[in-house]
Each structure stands twice: as structure tokens, then as C-alpha cells.
Design a protein around this nucleic acid. Structure first.
Lengths: 301, 301
DNA sequence: TATTCCGATAGTGAC
DNA sequence: GTCACTATCGGAATGAG
């Protein structure tokens, strides 16, 4: 990640200014908090502007054009990452753009977008199975982003967490000391491990994405979000329709059923609670209520 | 029909007082019109109270009980026809009750209810096929009620009707003469035939009624009503699910498919416009719009 | 499996 | 096929200055 967003204008622009009134609450409340958070900190050290966007088309003038492009795909982020506020485009360099999913399905939900045109029109299962170089590069990015999300989860939920208490207590002591370190990395060296929040993060792709432009989902496991509105939303992350990056390369078609979920009954699979295993059949409203309960328990773990 | 409702309290009670706020507009706007109408006139001549209701159970005290009875069936009308306003219970005697359907599916929609307990729990196809005496009695009642509805249609739509113009013009002349007859029957003897409104009336039963208590539908053909809200409403009158009284007695089960519409795909039959034959497949909203257009053309015939 | 809107379909409860 | 309510399921449009 050679180039990053400047962190100066962190709070300058809101998502609403870009996408209009219908935009759901942004996933990164983090950005508006006083306390430093994983995303701002990761961006802070380097200030250089991106060397040059790969295809520097003139950025669209009117906002409704952006709205349309966001609906039809993810191309606008790839083409003009610099035109978005840091609350939407978290990170970018010549090869990658990382955004907050506009319609997050978990409390933290990022998309990792490759900017290489040779890649971004491929089917994700194909690209990640056939191109070892790409797979390795994705794994490298995911390895960077998982800790970032883990820190965000700690920021959001650490104070509710039983197993994170050692960390939280020690952090409180540390921050009240005169020479408290200013970066997460420095702080964490001095602190007990506490809860391993990275275990609460998953990364993978959908077997049959609807949006054009290859995208890798990186998100917390909770599925607690106002944008989670129907069965496919849930099952696309909590069934084999979601293929973790760790599972690649896949066996070829015919060997691995995940190439063709439609042949195995998708999207009519039952909804199963990710945490307790309870089968909700097709009762989405009941699942939603249950997910809120499980979210509370999960935070408190 | 030996006994009739008194016509004195015609406008005294509204349907809303009985059934609460959720009650649709009553089908008998006729009742509140200045001009004499078929129903009021038919009731006017005889004033005697009903000799004795067949099972004079104490009438339910609370209004919600009445609401419930009306929802679960038609028993309340059979048991206590005298407790309803003439806008709801049009006619009754020891053997029959005629009501305005609480949820009319055409602009005029009556139900004929036999009061005999030996009859009213039978399946309508069974009763009308196996009991020639009952069938004959129903035919007699229908023969009385069809002209009543025909007169109501003439009252409602006669002035829009092309083919009814001879009658309408002559009626206007007649009514402006000094010694105008006061009854429909007297008037009609002196007037040209005009449109044959009886042809716009159908009578029959549903192959599988949902409401308990055997009931015969007698209604205009238009299917123009706010209460017509879904496919089954329409198809239950405009497919072979509706069995005209004239078709009885039916052939036995196995001979006549109408005994078991469910075995032949009901309720998934397409909706076909009763007037132009256009197939609306399962597009109810489009059919509704079309029915309004056809209603206007039908009135003007 | 992008969202959103509309509408068709299905199950239930009514006391 | 009683109604009314909720929810699930299913297709179509989505923007072009």
C-alpha cells in the first residue's frame, strides 16, 4: 500500500453528500469518534498522494451520475478513489481500493477491489483458483486488513467484552500515564492480548456476485446491520455460497460444488444461525430478531 | 315470502353501527336515494312481522360477538334476521333470508340463505344436486330476486344505458304525468321493454365455499367493487368454480369436474375478462384497472 | 447472488 | 374459496446530462 488517503479531511465530507438521502448509515462511525481508530491510524503515517490513478478519466460532475455508477457496479471507486471521502474509500493505491460496503451486512464490512482490468472482470472463483499470483496478493491484502478490522471491533465492542477485560483494563492504565504511546501498534506491544478480535473477521467472495467488478468481502461475523434485509443477504455470507479466501484454490468444476450453487438448491437453503446453529428455515423476520440477541451475546464474549 | 321487514326504519340504522369501522360501503346506495327502488318497493306492501324465527336463540348482547359471527359465518342472519337494518337484510321469511353481501364483489351482490338446518350445513353442490325440492325452491327464490336486482341495475345505470333509452324516455314522460303509477310493476306494464337488465344478473354457488352456512350468490356481472381484492375473489365468480343454479342437478363426482376444482389446478387458473375474454394471467392489478373500463362500457350498452 | 418498488403468493388468526 | 395482517417470494427497473 504505497499511497494512502490524507487523513486531514477525515470528517469533512459525509456519505450523504455523495449518495443522497437514501444512503444507509455509514459503517465507519469510527471516523467521527474522538478516540483514534484502526482505519485513521493506518492511514496516518504516510501522506503521499497517489502517484497516478490507472485510468484517470475525468471525474463525473453530477452527483446522480455517481449514484447510478454505485448502483451498477464498483467501477467508480476503482477509477476515481480519490474523489470519495475517507469514510467511503478507506485505502487505495495503484493496485487496490478498499471501501466501506455501501450496504454493510455486518457491523463492519469492507470490500477489497483489485484495480487491474485483467482481473476485475473475471469470475472471482475463477480468478482465485487459476491465478496463484492474484491469490497470494489478495491474501496479503486480507492479512493487512483483518487486523485493521479487528482493532475497529475492539474500539466498538471492547468495553462490553468479558475476554477483552485484561486488555481494556491495561489500556486504561496506559492511556492515563504521562507518556502514553500514540499508535495502536506501539500500544499493543505493551498490552496483554485480551480477546483475539481477528477471529471475528472473515474474508471471502460470493460464488455468483451480482455486482460487476471483482470484490472480496472482509467483514465481522455478526450479521448485525440494518442493511441485512432478506434471506439472500444472510445466506450469501453464512452458507457455502460464501467462499473463504483460505479455501482457494478450489477444486475444478465437478469436484467442488461451490462452482454451481444453483444446481444444489440455492437460493432456497434454510437460514441457520451462525452462532448457535438454530435453523430458521425461511423465517427471516425471526432470524433478524435472533441475530440481535446473538449480537449482544457475541459482544459480551 | 309471507313476512317482510318493516320499511319504516329504512334509514334508521347504518351498517357501520353493527359492524364497526372496517365495514365497506354498503351495496344498497339505493336505500338512501329519493327515487323509489326495487328493494324498498318489494318490501313495502306487506307489513307483518315474521311469525317466529326457527331457532329463537337470545340475540347476542355485545357488538363484537355480532362482528365475530358475521366473520365466521352467516348464522346470525339466519337466526336473527329481524335484528338487522333493511340495508343489510333485504328480505326474510320462515324459510329464507336475503342479505346484501357484506363484501360485495359486484356492484349489486345478494346472498340467499336457506334457514332450514337440514339444508344449511350441506355442501351446496350436494344439496342442489341431490334434493330436487330444494333446487326447485331455490329456483323460485332466484326467479323473484333477479327482477329485483334488474330493477336496481336499471335504477343505478339506466340513465347511462344506450339500449335502455326507450324505457328511460317513456319513464320520464310517465312520471311527469298527473296520475303516475306508484309501483314498479304498474309502471312497467305501461313502458317499453328497454334493456333486459335480468340478463346482467347471475345466480349460483361456489364449488368450495369458505363461509359456513349454505348461500346462493345472486349478483350483477360487472365485478366492479372495492371489495374485489384478489384473484380468488374474481375467479370464484368467473370460472367454473362458480356453478350457476341453472346447471343443477350436476352429474355425479367423476362425471362433472366441478366437484373437485382443486384437482384441476384451482386456484391457479388464469384470470379472464368476463366481457372481452382477455387473459390477464395472474396480473390482478391490471385486471382491476381493466374491469373499471369494462364497467363503463357495460353501463353504456 | 447490487437496491428498491411493486405485486403475487402463502399462512395465520379472528373469539 | 370469509377478512385482514404479516411476511415471503418474484420480477422489473434502475440513468442517459
Amino acid at each position: 500500500m504505497p499511497s494512502m488517503n490524507p487523513s486531514d479531511d477525515l470528517d469533512a465530507i459525509t456519505a450523504e453528500e455523495i449518495t443522497g438521502t437514501a444512503v444507509p448509515k455509514d459503517g465507519i462511525e469510527a471516523m467521527t469518534h474522538k478516540r483514534p481508530n484502526a482505519f485513521t491510524e493506518l492511514m496516518a503515517p504516510k501522506k503521499s498522494k497517489p502517484s497516478s490513478p490507472p485510468t484517470p478519466k475525468p471525474s463525473s460532475s453530477t452527483s446522480y451520475t455517481k449514484v447510478f455508477k454505485e448502483r451498477s457496479g464498483l467501477g467508480a471507486y476503482i477509477e476515481n478513489p480519490e474523489s470519495y471521502p475517507p469514510s467511503r474509500v478507506i485505502l487505495y493505491d495503484d493496485d487496490w481500493v478498499v471501501i466501506n460496503d455501501l450496504y454493510p451486512k455486518s457491523s463492519v464490512h469492507l470490500l477489497l477491489l483489485p484495480r487491474n482490468p485483467k482481473i476485475y472482470d473475471l469470475h472471482p472463483l475463477r480468478a482465485l483458483t487459476d491465478d496463484p499470483e492474484f491469490l497470494a496478493a489478495v491474501r496479503e491484502q486480507v492479512a493487512k486488513l483483518k487486523p485493521l478490522i479487528a482493532n475497529e471491533l475492539r474500539r466498538l465492542y471492547g468495553q462490553h467484552s468479558e475476554s477483552d477485560k485484561p486488555y481494556q483494563s491495561a489500556l486504561e492504565d496506559l492511556m492515563s500515564s504521562p507518556n502514553a504511546p500514540t499508535t495502536q501498534a506501539e500500544r499493543d506491544k505493551l498490552l496483554p492480548p485480551g480477546r483475539d478480535w481477528k477471529k471475528e473477521v472473515v474474508a471471502g467472495v460470493h460464488a455468483h456476485p451480482s455486482m460487476s467488478h471483482l470484490h472480496i468481502h472482509i467483514l465481522s461475523k455478526d450479521m448485525y446491520s440494518a442493511c441485512l434485509k432478506h434471506k439472500k443477504h444472510y445466506n450469501s455470507f453464512k452458507t457455502s455460497f460464501f467462499v473463504p479466501i483460505d479455501d482457494f484454490p478450489l477444486g475444478q468444476e465437478g469436484e467442488d460444488k461451490r462452482w454451481h450453487p444453483g444446481r444444489n438448491g440455492w437460493p432456497n437453503w434454510d437460514m441457520i444461525c451462525w452462532r448457535c446453529g438454530r435453523n430458521f428455515s425461511n423465517k427471516f423476520v425471526q432470524l433478524k430478531a435472533h441475530l440481535e440477541e446473538e449480537f449482544e451475546r457475541w459482544k459480551r464474549e
